[in-house]
Computed example of a mutant assay.
Amino acid sequence: MNENGRPDPATEVFVAHRNLLFTVAYEMLGSVADAEDVLQETWLRWMGVDLDTVRNKRAYLVRIITRQALNRLRTLTRRKESYIGPWLPEPLLTAPDVAEDVELADSVSMAMLLVLETLTPTERAVFVLREVFEIPYGEIAKAIGKSAATVRQIARRAREHVAARRPRVQVSRSEQQAVVERFLLALRTGQLRELMEIMAPDVVLIADGGGLVPATRAPIHGAELVAKLLARLNRVVATFETTTVWLNGAPAGRIEIDGELAALSLVVENGRITQIYAMANPRKLARLDEPAELARTASSSVSSPVTSPSKV
């Protein structure tokens, strides 16, 4: 802090880019906890930089967080090899206005994060930086330690890979919200026929319990099987509450089953649900009380002073 109570220049720059940096890290890692750790590591390295030697502060910060995220991503890849059951990205509570930025909402959607999981760490970093944040090839090259020509080749390969796997049907947020609310009502009341009608015949349910809570260890296919599973769950518990929330830029479900929390992210196509991602791992649900602040650009100003690195 200076004598006027404002942050020092390094902190002020970091705060202005904080939401952008967190968004980059989350999209690369699919984990809020790991994104926050990487953000803290970036802060510590940034505070040791001589600002007079930095011409493009945004590019420098993106370079730091990309390298830290790549290191963490390789660790996560090894960790997932021993994960119990299906692994899903950590759901992110977002404000409804995130959906207004269609590209941002699509980039943090559960479906897109799962597509990004099929890329190599380097491909994922290049795709996120180029396609979502429109970082110049030269800056990406410096961030990942490769030539600009190589980055262009990686970007083309990653773009083709994602295009072949991403959901092809786009629905309006109002349509998605209506379908989600109809589904949650049927789920809450245990209406088997309504559940089957709101789901596509070939719907797929994927549940992530991480071995910590009961969850199916393999995907469940087909509306009848999924509906029976969900309806039976409603009947065998004492309390079953559902709430519509915004997760990863889209309407979703927050479920409380006998006091235990779960989150449902739903993919809607042609008025029906085609994918259900059920997160029950409590370690991935600890940050659903406050919406995350996402951004594809830096803030124009700092609205309040920062008193602790953990707050930036």
Rank of each mutant, 00 (worst) to 15 (best):
V15P: 01
A16P: 05
N19W: 15
N19D: 15
L21C: 07
F22Y: 05
F22L: 14
T23Q: 04
V24L: 13
V24C: 04
A25M: 02
Y26F: 14
Y26H: 07
E27H: 04
M28S: 05
M28N: 10
M28H: 03
G30H: 10
V32Q: 07
V32M: 11
V32A: 14
A33E: 11
D34K: 14
A35G: 07
E36S: 11
D37P: 05
D37A: 13
L39K: 00
Q40C: 00
Q40H: 13
Q40L: 15
E41V: 03
E41L: 14
T42V: 01
T42C: 07
R45G: 13
R45Q: 15
V49W: 02
V49D: 02
D50P: 04
L51E: 09
D52T: 12
D52F: 02
D52R: 14
D52Q: 15
V54D: 05
V54E: 07
R55N: 09
R58D: 04
L61Y: 01
V62S: 07
V62R: 08
V62N: 01
I64N: 00
I65K: 14
T66W: 01
Q68T: 11
Q68S: 09
Q68L: 10
A69F: 05
A69W: 00
N71C: 13
L73M: 12
L73V: 00
L73Q: 09
T75D: 15
L76M: 14
T77E: 12
R78P: 08
K80M: 13
K80G: 09
E81V: 03
S82D: 14
Y83S: 10
W87Y: 12
W87Q: 11
L88S: 03
L88W: 05
L92Y: 04
L93D: 00
T94I: 03
T94L: 07
A95S: 14
P96Q: 04
V98L: 11
V98D: 03
V98P: 09
V98N: 05
A99P: 01
A99T: 07
D101Q: 12
E103M: 10
E103I: 11
L104M: 14
L104S: 01
L104N: 02
S107I: 09
S107M: 12
V108D: 05
V108H: 08
S109Q: 09
M110S: 12
M110L: 08
M110H: 10
M112S: 06
M112G: 02
L113D: 00
L114E: 13
L114V: 09
V115W: 12
L116P: 03
L116G: 01
L116Y: 09
T118C: 10
T118Y: 06
L119W: 02
L119D: 00
L119H: 06
L119N: 12
L119V: 10
T120N: 10
T120Y: 10
T122A: 13
E123V: 05
E123T: 00
